[in-house]
Computed example of a mutant assay.
Amino acid sequence: MSKEQEVLLHVSDLEKVFPIGGGKVNKVLDGISFDIKRGETLGLVGESGCGKTTVGRTVLRLYEADGGNVVFKGQDVHRSSRKQYKQLTKQMQMIFQDPYASLNPRMTVGEIIGEGIDIHKIYKGKQRMARIHELLELVGLNREHASRFPHEFSGGQRQRIGIARALAVEPEFIVCDEAISALDVSIQAQVINLLMDLQEKLGLTYLFISHDLSMVKHISNNIAVMYLGNMVEKASTDQLFSNPLHPYTKGLLSAIPTPDPVYQKQKEHVIIRGDIMSAAMQEKGCKFRSRCSFASEQCNVKPQLREMGEGHFVACHHV
């Protein structure tokens, strides 16, 4: 299989702008590019407000892109017809961050999971109900739960319902948008393990969005780091954790707490100081320069991602 055939999702120079009043705009995504191969997971990390969720929603065309391309299995998502896009939504699904807000409280679990099945006319009658029961058991719930309402479940159980809903239309690609951030730590591990088991069983491909680097390391084949709408580093998981190159990535990794207090004391701590530049300012140059200890005049020109090793890309003039 050629490299081109292996790539399930290709995103190039993706841009998204939101108006903020007074004729000003907030450029939330500023030329984001990445590939995800079939059956793999790309972890997308960065602090709150950097545009991670906007990437996921724009990839699925929940937001219209203001520039760039999203190509899924050779088809341009943002230039597809309504009929073509309906077929794409069957193959591309999303697991949302908040398991309390993402489920309709007036619908039973069976109705929630069956909604996508009905829209795409996949199963009917007894087959439909059998499929709902199968999905509930697949995510670790009981078939009896189909007649209950969301308020009768815990946060972890609700997220399992959300996963079952995403799987109902038999997708190939799923955006996991902070799918574990609203859950207790013990439940987070269970949901991560469930996602990994489902990936192996069903051959799924994930875009896993999170700010929890330890969880991202556990589930991802490759990791992309974002800062204020820009991609600053991309690499395999092993490369990124063993040899981070961008100052921002180093700061994120040094902030991960470790269970060994002795090692925690001995390890190098990279402290990121200064204020976050406003994304609405639209200044040219590196957006991290106001917080970077290596910043120079050269940083007034925006750095482009360049390959520093096999599959290891970084956007920094000083690497």
Results as ranks from 00 to 15, higher is better:
residue 276 I to S: 15
residue 237 T to Q: 02
residue 182 A to C: 04
residue 201 K to G: 06
residue 309 G to F: 09
residue 137 E to P: 14
residue 214 S to K: 03
residue 163 I to T: 04
residue 61 R to T: 02
residue 243 N to S: 12
residue 265 K to G: 09
residue 289 R to W: 03
residue 225 V to D: 12
residue 313 F to Y: 14
residue 282 Q to Y: 11
residue 1 M to W: 10
residue 11 V to K: 07
residue 113 I to P: 00
residue 65 A to Y: 15
residue 179 A to L: 08
residue 27 K to G: 02
residue 76 D to G: 08
residue 116 G to W: 04
residue 200 E to S: 13
residue 179 A to E: 08
residue 251 G to L: 10
residue 318 H to P: 05
residue 151 H to T: 11
residue 279 A to S: 13
residue 288 F to I: 00
residue 37 K to A: 07
residue 186 S to E: 02
residue 146 A to E: 05
residue 153 F to N: 00
residue 102 S to G: 00
residue 197 D to I: 13
residue 94 M to T: 12
residue 276 I to R: 10
residue 5 Q to Y: 11
residue 64 E to W: 13
residue 102 S to D: 03
residue 48 S to I: 07
residue 165 R to F: 01
residue 270 V to W: 09
residue 213 L to M: 10
residue 288 F to M: 06
residue 33 S to H: 06
residue 291 R to C: 03
residue 259 P to L: 10
residue 70 V to D: 01
residue 119 I to H: 01
residue 4 E to G: 09
residue 267 K to F: 02
residue 101 A to H: 01
residue 98 D to G: 07
residue 279 A to W: 06
residue 20 I to P: 03
residue 94 M to F: 06
residue 64 E to R: 11
residue 203 G to W: 01
residue 296 S to K: 10
residue 286 C to N: 01
residue 304 Q to Y: 15
residue 57 R to Q: 10
residue 18 F to Y: 14
residue 109 V to Q: 02
residue 266 Q to A: 08
residue 299 C to K: 05
residue 59 V to P: 11
residue 83 K to F: 13
residue 200 E to F: 09
residue 276 I to K: 15
residue 226 M to W: 03
residue 155 G to I: 04
residue 48 S to V: 03
residue 252 L to T: 02
residue 313 F to M: 11
residue 230 N to H: 12
residue 8 L to E: 14
residue 17 V to L: 06
residue 93 Q to D: 01
residue 269 H to D: 13
residue 282 Q to N: 13
residue 15 E to I: 13
residue 22 G to V: 04
residue 110 G to F: 03
residue 273 R to T: 04
residue 160 R to D: 04
residue 209 I to F: 08
residue 137 E to I: 11
residue 120 H to C: 00
residue 73 K to G: 11
residue 271 I to V: 14
residue 212 D to A: 09
residue 277 M to P: 09
residue 22 G to A: 02
residue 294 F to V: 15
residue 308 M to C: 10
residue 299 C to W: 15
residue 155 G to A: 02
residue 227 Y to M: 02
residue 16 K to C: 06
residue 196 M to E: 14
residue 135 L to E: 04
residue 148 R to G: 07
residue 189 A to F: 06
residue 253 L to W: 03
residue 10 H to G: 08
residue 119 I to Y: 08
residue 106 R to D: 04
residue 293 S to N: 08
residue 88 L to F: 07
residue 226 M to K: 06
residue 137 E to G: 09
residue 260 D to M: 07
residue 193 N to S: 15
residue 60 L to W: 05
residue 303 P to I: 10
residue 278 S to G: 08
residue 245 L to A: 12
residue 200 E to I: 15
residue 141 L to S: 09
residue 205 T to G: 03
residue 188 Q to T: 07
residue 90 K to N: 05
residue 21 G to W: 08
residue 187 I to G: 09
residue 40 E to L: 11
residue 252 L to H: 07
residue 112 I to K: 05
residue 257 P to T: 03
residue 274 G to H: 13
residue 215 M to K: 14
residue 302 K to R: 14
residue 52 K to L: 11
residue 87 Q to G: 15
residue 42 L to N: 02
residue 40 E to F: 04
residue 3 K to E: 11
residue 271 I to W: 06
